[in-house]
């Protein structure tokens, strides 16, 4: 199932963090492609899912060694881009929603100023047009009183609203790909779903691609079209979300089994028994579902 309108192609991405105790190989030889779809990147902490998202936009610290055969976006080779050229991609073409609005918003500027800045930088419009557009965007992310919220500072808004503001800011330049790094893990379940519904609608309406980074397997299974499961810096499995519960990969099964369930009360939760063989490169290539290039 190679997508016709392919947005992003990553081939053999490697990320190494040098350290005095030897290099940490955070991501090893991962490859995936993305069309206009919702793809979930799931894994435990330390599995390399966030650094993968950041590496695409070259947002890792300079000491990180990122190498790849190919990172191409709409046929353009992002690896060959200079910092300056990349700035035109960041925000306008690919944007990223970070986990915590508290740390990602500028505390000394109002919410409205920050969002309209994102618009002005990429669209060269007047301030009043930007303001108009910002208010429209705030309404689109279901903020009921945009005029009022426009004037607020980040510390005056709740976590759920902060996250919606982040999403509004990232969507206002109308990117074709959105990388969302645990955008909802700090929110209550109902608010979380409402925020996801906003993303979902925008993906469908605008034909955007979405990379959704999360540790919540169940949520990803119900929200995304495809799921990439990572462990120890490697891709364990790429699977259609609908088939996730029938997965035969031992790691995916292990993760699914250790979730407690509302409806069933099994006496003991099964725990994950880790197997070093999972980290061998050739372990899972045989069962390559749907011909997705791994």
């Amino acid at each position: 199932m190679i997508q016709q309108d392919q947005l992003l192609q990553v081939t053999n991405l490697n990320i190494i963090f040098p350290s005095p105790k030897g290099d940490v190989h955070a991501v090893k030889d991962i490859s995936f492609s993305l069309g206009k779809e919702k793809i979930g990147l799931v894994g435990e902490s330390g599995s390399g899912k966030s650094v993968t998202g950041r590496a695409i936009l070259r947002l890792l610290p300079p000491y990180a060694k990122v190498s790849a055969e190919e990172i191409s976006f709409k046929g353009q080779d992002l690896l060959s881009f200079s910092e300056k050229e990349l700035r035109c991609i960041r925000g306008k073409e690919i944007s990223m929603v970070m986990q915590d609005p508290k740390y990602s918003l500028n505390p000394v500027r109002t919410v409205g100023q920050q969002i309209s800045e994102a618009y002005i930088v990429h669209s060269k419009v007047s301030k009043s047009v930007a303001r108009e557009q910002t208010l429209k965007m705030l309404t689109a992310v279901r903020i009921r009183n945009p005029e009022q919220v426009y004037k607020l500072y980040p510390h005056e808004v709740s976590g759920g609203m902060g996250q919606r503001i982040m999403i509004a800011m990232m969507l206002i330049p109308e990117p074709s790909l959105l990388i969302a790094d645990e955008p909802t893990s700090a929110l209550d379940v109902t608010v979380q779903l409402q925020v996801l519904a906003i993303l979902d609608d925008l993906v469908t309406q605008r034909g955007m691609g979405l990379i959704f980074i999360s540790h919540d397997l169940e949520l990803v299974a119900s929200f995304c079209d495809r799921v990439i499961i990572m462990y120890g810096g490697r891709i364990m499995e790429v699977i259609n979300a609908a088939d996730l519960h029938n997965s035969t990969h031992p790691y995916t099964r292990g993760l699914l089994n250790c979730l407690p369930r509302i409806e069933g009360r099994n006496e003991r939760l099964s725990t994950l028994v880790r197997d070093d063989a999972w980290l061998d490169a050739d372990f899972w290539h045989s069962n390559d579902s749907d011909g997705i290039i791994i």
Partner: peptide, 13 residues
């Protein structure tokens, strides 16, 4: 909400 993502149900929240 704990059952996972269901677009139709969210509109009724």
């Amino acid at each position: 909400a704990s059952k996972g993502y269901d677009r139709a149900a969210i509109d009724l929240f």
